[in-house]
């Protein structure tokens, strides 16, 4: 029985990390109708920055820098590539993101080389045992963090003007633009937010019980892709009754 509970807790925790990645896919898709194949490399970028800086800055600041770096990278892709592309077909942009992914991943794997990098997390390999059920602290931290982030996102999506703009843009971009929603800003925000979520996911993909960040980490990110495709075509919260 305790094994069963352990497996369930671990499974839900891992699932919540993948949800963070999948949410990034969905946010970008809803805001811009682009399937972002560069998501895995944004994740790797966030993880890499955290791994490199944690010795000097300490864990929390390094994580902040990693999140900022991944958000910045996402925003940069939006500003430099997507915004300038004048194409009708969004499949073309999706293919462009494959190119971005190749460039980013190649550079990052070159930097990482054969190393396995630690992200310097405070939980290390500690395990909490309650009534015979033992779960790694990292798994609990992942579950709590993901829950908080996803809840915050859903609330913002429902109640803030940013969320309303995003929903409007997702529902019908042209009408939203006529209503005064600035689509470029929505799109930029979506890419930055997706990058930030990916950086948080990178942390929990590489902490104990996995050895650390290496060039293979981005493959794991792709596991969330089917989840986003299968479950992500409609945003779960706050669809307007008219839709």
């Amino acid at each position: 029985m305790s094994t069963f509970v352990e497996l369930v807790v671990n499974g839900v925790s891992m699932g919540s990390v993948y949800a963070l990645i999948a949410l990034g896919f969905v946010i970008i898709f809803k805001a811009t109708e682009v399937v972002n194949f560069a998501h895995a490399s944004l994740l790797l970028a966030g993880g890499y920055v955290t791994a490199v800086l944690h010795d000097d800055l300490g864990f929390l600041l390094a994580l902040g820098a990693g999140i900022a770096a991944a958000a910045g990278a996402g925003a940069l892709v939006e500003v430099l590539v997507l915004r300038r592309a004048r194409v009708e077909n969004h499949a073309v942009l999706a293919i462009v993101t494959i190119g971005v992914d190749i460039v980013l991943t190649t550079e990052l794997t070159r930097r990482i080389g054969t190393e396995v990098l630690s992200l310097g997390d405070p939980w290390r390999d500690r395990i909490v045992t309650v009534a015979g059920v033992s779960v790694a602290e990292t798994r609990i931290a992942a579950l709590v963090t993901a829950t908080v982030l996803i809840t915050a996102f859903l609330l913002a999506f429902r109640h803030t003007s940013w969320g309303v703009a995003m929903r409007a843009a997702a529902e019908d971009g042209e009408t939203a633009a006529l209503m005064g929603v600035r689509l470029t800003r929505v799109s930029l925000g979506a890419w930055a937010l997706a990058g930030a979520l990916a950086a948080v996911a990178a942390l929990f993909l590489t902490v104990f019980p996995t050895p650390g960040l290496d060039r293979g980490t981005s493959f794991a990110a792709m596991k969330a892709f089917p989840a986003a495709i299968l479950g992500g075509s409609t945003p779960p919260p706050a669809r307007s009754p008219a839709a």
């Binding site: 390999d125 500690r126 395990i127 033992s134 104990f208 019980p209 996995t210 050895p211 290496d214």
Partner: peptide, 15 residues
């Protein structure tokens, strides 16, 4: 692979 060994040893010893 090496990653799996590291995870296995880490979890086993921690438990």
């Amino acid at each position: 692979g090496p990653r799996q060994s590291a995870s296995l040893a880490g979890v086993a010893r921690a438990k």
